[in-house]
């Protein structure tokens, strides 16, 4: 590549994949999965094409908020090892382009979700985008160590939106699915922060590990995991629960509690001695925890013969 084209590349000659990267595809996959779970376990049938379109627009809305997040956070993304290769800090996409993509896809996704399903679902999606882009990214992320706790709400909305697509409403089941992700987010991210400490510190993001120390973070992981358990189990006794979900939840919550307990009991010397093995394994477990809870919910509701009568 000549100098001339190199300069063009720096001024927005991005490839299509760079714009996809702006949408945080890995986060979108979680959004798709949980929104699909919320939609499929709801007791109302949705036409497959409308269901597909709704999930697609929820995913695009999630991606749009990711682009807005990258636009605002380009300065700290340049500092952090994990994020410095993102499209804006690496120079493949300009900040203005990211803003334009984020705003355009936000509007498109909300309007199209309203047309594909209903305006409650569209309103929830609009609020989610606002919450993630403005409340979390612009306000809380850099101002409070509780950023993860409150920001986690943005990631908790997709199953509630999926449920609203099918039912047109909000119910105890969708609120509990929201709470499951909301309460899961802090221990998940704080476990990551324990073994990725230098990144957040260098970027000046007030992660709990930086502001209150690592001992306090370990205690917070345990407390939030204990608070998470009742919500996870309560889902099992709602109309979408059953023995498959309950059995899965009991096992996963026991494992997650044990992991959180182990993290709490360790000190930094022990953690550094084994390369943060426990923290890393709990982080991996937390990924499986959320995935398997929603998978169990789908199996429970989509495979016939797995109701409570199974135990009778």
């Amino acid at each position: 590549m000549t100098d001339a084209t190199s300069n063009l590349a720096q001024s927005g000659e991005a490839q299509f994949g760079d714009y996809i990267a702006l949408l945080k595809p890995r986060v979108m996959s979680l959004v798709v999965f949980t929104a699909m779970a919320g939609l499929l376990v709801a007791p109302v049938h949705v036409h497959p094409l409308l269901a597909f379109a709704s999930i697609l627009f929820i995913a695009i809305g999630g991606g749009a908020s990711g682009a807005l997040n990258m636009w605002w956070d380009a300065d700290i993304d340049r500092v952090m090892k994990r994020t410095r290769n993102r499209p804006i800090p690496s120079g493949r996409v300009t900040a203005d382009e990211a803003l334009a993509v984020g705003l355009a896809l936000s509007g498109l996704s909300v309007m199209m979700l309203g047309l594909a399903s209903n305006w409650l679902a569209a309103g929830l999606l609009a609020f989610t985008i606002f919450f993630y882009a403005v409340i979390y990214t612009m306000w809380l992320k850099r101002s409070t160590p509780q950023n993860i706790v409150i920001g986690g709400a943005a990631g908790a909305f997709p199953p509630m939106i999926g449920w609203a697509v099918a039912t047109g409403g909000v119910s105890v089941e969708s609120v509990l699915m929201f709470m499951l992700i909301f309460m899961w987010t802090p221990p998940h991210f704080w476990a990551l922060a324990l073994f990725m400490k230098s990144d957040y510190k260098d970027a000046g993001v007030p992660m709990l590990t930086v502001t209150h120390g690592r001992k306090a973070t370990r205690a917070h992981i345990l407390v939030y995991t204990v608070l998470l358990v009742p919500f996870a189990l309560a889902l099992g006794v709602t109309s979408i629960g059953g023995p498959v979900y309950m059995g899965t939840a009991l096992l996963l919550n026991a494992l997650f509690l044990k992991g959180a307990w182990d993290i709490w009991r360790r000190d930094e010397a022990q953690a550094e001695a084994d390369g943060y093995a426990t923290e890393k394994s709990v982080f991996k477990l937390s990924l499986a925890y959320l995935f398997l809870h929603f998978l169990a919910l789908m199996v429970q509701n989509l495979v016939p013969g797995f109701g409570w009568e199974l135990l009778a």
Partner: peptide, 18 residues
């Protein structure tokens, strides 16, 4: 740039994807 310049190929790919 000539028609077969790398920049054109990149733009073509992007436009086709769009």
């Amino acid at each position: 740039f000539r028609d077969d310049h790398e920049l054109h190929k990149r733009r073509f790919g992007r436009n086709m994807a769009l």
